[in-house]
Nucleic acid binder design. Structure first.
Length: 561
RNA sequence: CGGGGCGUAGCGCAGUCUGGCUAGCGCACCUGCCUUGGGAGCAGGGGGUCGGAGGUUCAAAUCCUCUCGCCCCGACCA
């Protein structure tokens, strides 16, 4: 492709409202443009990258026997009502009515529709297993689209769904997807982790996420260098070293106006880990007192698994429920449900005394209060691995894929059943598996760039090489560059040739920004000696090669087919 | 939804507090000359409902009211 014929609107300066590196670079290099919040257009370069990612997805999905299909984005409400998600999902679902007043929605995912199809067509165990996938548009009315292409309201997703006769059979498809996903992300040149995750509104028991480490990410994962345990911090199990404290007698301490852990900690000259933090929450079934160690943070998601949806109590509610003002609450002697973090099980602590301006030192679990014990604290860097005790690392990551064992969560309500060998009806056992191609692209940029621009992994690059004839007014340059361009193209190598009548500096800057991994530079001086330069975008190192040898050298760089 | 910021040419910005001249600067764009190894130079030029609506005023980018949009933090997130 000739640069002069291609729409590549590069920018010298980044638009002021872009902040994530991938967003800035993809805008500046002319890959994407924004239409509105969370809505992006892919320009020719951006679309080429997407096409390459999708090709990898198709190859790897096809390789595990998945079959590509295509479903509508516009769905009738009834199907979503049958699984309960029409009501369970809030404003995030785009809803509308058709001309006759029928409730419709735009698909944010396709479990319902895939399952509906299976319910119509699958009859017998002989029809199973099936794995169906699509690469298709999803719409979600995100509360806060952000970070450019990383969190949008409309995006394409590769989503696949497996249909099996049993949990054991599902395990096979789950494993096949796991392996395919590893190959996909590896081929895309990403550094990534597979972690245990919270199935959330998808339901089901087991799920994993594929995460690309990047400071632009929105999630955090805990990783154990010891045993390899890795999980989203939403559910990562960790412990912390216990306090070294002697046998404190129970004593009341006057702590005037000292409410927060920090204040009391300073006042009593004891580190926060010696304190208990009691937080009153209002769940659907009434008030719940959650207790975590003073140096730790309550993790709302973990708590939700135990008590369901909840909200923090207001000041008045605290006083009314516990008879004491916030800041001096302790878990002792209340009638409400108490859920305490396991870190508090051993040792002596300081807690609110349930008496204004007093704390109680020497509080001990089970002796002074009882509670349901759960892991409800947020895992942090330096916590100890729940499995092997090694120190955990916490990393910020971009979620690029996820896989769920759904079981019969969707097949039961939608009546997706089959007849087993003995003629009995059974619900189909399902799994669902997603990958966000745009996030792969963004993560690749986040992980591969320098101050000058993008450095694409070869597998994702919109072109294999870029040719830079530095002076388009020099006939020798143009002739030599054009010859190589044609030879490479004929050989199936994708070439971008910057044939614009621009100065050398402009071409170098744009080439660095666009990030094609290999540049071939035709300069007048070198050409006089019969040489051209092959430059590696990442290392910025270049070698001078005889004109006649360039073709061969480039061929050698291309991955074996 | 709560908090904060911003909307002036394609991009980056100044001007707004303290109302007043033909609304300005850099880059980009067009024409010509010149130049061709890291975003050149000279000369000439085109491009603006100052986000929108209403109001105050002799006069509004500037003050007031409403409204729309975008970004960031938080809540939320298949």
């Amino acid at each position: 492709m000739r640069f002069s014929k291609m729409f590549i609107p590069t920018l010298r300066e980044a638009p002021a409202d872009a902040e994530a590196v991938s967003h800035i670079l993809m805008l500046r290099a002319g890959y994407v443009r924004q239409l509105a919040a969370g809505l992006y257009m892919l320009l020719p370069l951006g679309w080429r990258v997407m096409t390459k990612i999708n090709a990898i997805l198709r190859e790897e999905m096809d390789a595990i026997g998945a079959q590509e299909i295509s479903l509508p984005v516009l769905h009738p409400a009834e199907i979503w009502q049958q699984t309960g998600r029409w009501d369970a999902i809030g404003d995030e679902m785009f809803r509308l009515k058709d001309r006759s007043g029928r409730d419709m929605c735009l698909g944010m995912t396709h479990e319902e529709i895939m399952t509906w199809l299976a319910s119509r067509e699958i009859r017998s165990y002989r029809d199973l297993p099936q794995v169906w996938y699509q690469i298709q548009t999803k719409l979600r009315d995100e509360a806060r689209p952000k970070s450019g292409i990383l969190r949008t309201r409309e995006f394409t997703m590769k989503d696949s769904y497996s249909f099996d006769v049993s949990e054991e059979a599902l395990d096979v498809n789950y494993r096949l997807h796991t392996e395919a996903y590893h190959r996909i992300f590896k081929r895309c040149g990403l550094e990534f982790l597979m972690v245990e995750s919270d199935p959330g509104m998808m339901g089901g028991a087991v799920s994993h996420e594929f995460m690309a480490p990047s400071p632009a990410g929105e999630d955090e994962v805990a990783v154990c260098p010891g045993c390899g345990y890795s999980a989203n911090v939403e559910l990562a199990v960790s412990s912390t070293p216990g306090n070294e404290n002697e046998d404190w007698p129970l004593e009341e301490v006057h702590t005037p106006e000292k409410r927060t852990v920090q204040e009391v900690s300073n006042f009593m000259k004891l580190p926060p880990s010696y304190f208990m933090k009691s937080i009153l929450l209002i769940s659907e079934k009434g008030p719940v007192l959650a207790v975590v160690r003073g140096d730790q943070e309550l993790h709302e998601k973990k708590l939700s698994h135990i008590i369901g949806d909840h909200r923090p109590a207001q000041k008045g509610e605290v006083k009314e429920t516990l008879g004491v003002e916030a800041g001096f609450i302790g878990p002792m002697g209340h009638k409400v449900r108490v859920i305490a973090d396991t870190a508090l099980r051993e040792g002596f602590f300081v807690s609110g005394a349930n008496k204004p301006h007093y704390h109680l030192k020497g509080v001990r679990a089970e002796r002074d209060f009882s509670a349901e014990w759960h892991d409800i604290h947020k895992a942090r860097e330096g916590d100890l691995c729940g499995k092997c005790g090694e120190k955990l690392r916490v990393e910020r990551v971009i979620e690029i894929g996820n896989i769920f064992k759904l079981g019969t969560k969707y097949s039961r309500p939608l009546g997706a059943v089959f007849l087993n060998e003995s003629g009995q009806e059974e619900p189909i056992v399902m799994g669902s598996y997603g990958i966000g191609p745009a996030r792969i692209a963004a993560a690749a940029v986040e992980q591969n760039h320098d101050r000058d621009g993008i450095i694409w992994p070869r597998s994702l690059s919109p072109f294999d090489v870029e040719i830079l004839p530095l002076n388009m007014n020099d006939p020798v340059t143009v002739e030599a560059a054009s010859q190589l361009y044609e030879d490479l193209e004929k050989d199936g190598i994708k070439v971008l040739m910057d044939d614009r009548d621009e100065r050398a500096g402009v071409k170098f800057k744009d080439a660095d920004l666009i990030g094609i991994p290999t540049h071939i530079i035709f300069g007048e001086r070198n050409l006089k000696e019969g040489l051209v330069e092959i430059k590696d975008r990442r290392s910025k190192e270049s070698v001078k090669v005889k004109v006649g040898e360039v073709f061969g050298r480039i061929k050698d760089l291309m991955p074996a087919v």
